[in-house]
Design a protein around this nucleic acid. Sequence first.
DNA 1: TGTCGATGTAATGTTAATAGATACAACGAA
DNA 2: TTCGTTGTATCTATTAACATTACATCGACA
Lengths: 143, 143
Amino acid sequence: MQFSFRLPVATHILLCIERFKDEYKTTSTFLASSVNVNPVIIRKTLGQLKAAGLVEVAAGVGGAKLTKSPEDITLWDVFRAVEEDEDLFHFQENPNPKCPVGRNIHGVLGDRLEEVRQHMLADFKKITLADLLESIATKEAAE
Amino acid sequence: MQFSFRLPVATHILLCIERFKDEYKTTSTFLASSVNVNPVIIRKTLGQLKAAGLVEVAAGVGGAKLTKSPEDITLWDVFRAVEEDEDLFHFQENPNPKCPVGRNIHGVLGDRLEEVRQHMLADFKKITLADLLESIATKEAAE
DNA sequence: TGTCGATGTAATGTTAATAGATACAACGAA
DNA sequence: TTCGTTGTATCTATTAACATTACATCGACA
């Protein structure tokens, strides 16, 4: 029971783009070497981030940059960009309709779990890229 | 990106055990017909719930019952019983240690996401089996 | 305008997790 | 001893995710 790599990877990508924007051209190969995954994974993820309006990618010439300042990008934005907007939990599709529990559990439990999910998304909204960059800078300074 | 069936199935099982305790012997076959999965899945899940101290299962004679009252069992108990206690998110195992983002992202992002996870668990603690039984009873009465 | 490095994307392979199913030993009551 | 049930082991099928290769396309520049 786990989320996929995608949110951490996408966040890593965005942080690198911002952190190195003045030092390097942030190509998919460059980013792949920091994250340590195949460049194709980077390009796919970058494609999702682009579709969500978070980055611009220069086709041909190469490199990516943020479309907003890091203060205005939250993990919620990233999460929505890279994860399907499905329910958090699987439900058994065909519980027994003749059983009062079976025919009502989806509605009853689903409602509660949806609240939990919304709560999680609200937490994501509180975490900005700027927060993370600052934490990384602090760690860097302490090295 | 989803949780497995296990939490909803385990919850379904517990609700059925309590709802039908005075009417039927809640065997794995009986529960399987309400949830509509293979009885072996029920037995495996019941084994996890038993290991967590939430139910007693009568080997030989058959049937299961709760060890506590429904007010005292929360989704947190159920979640812990059926899901491995791993991190919510996967991280790339080997980010580039030469990159300041790569060598620090696990610590920085991991801390934030762990807070989100703890928050989710706290939400689970607020939802009791008794709440769910009451909601189901309300729906039943309205049918 | 041809070259070159980069992106976009399709196709394929690999791995891991999950669920479904069958089989059977062990259990406990009658 | 019989019978219904639980506890497990094992096998298979399915699915999702990630890795990799390959190649068409793009845009700047000599």
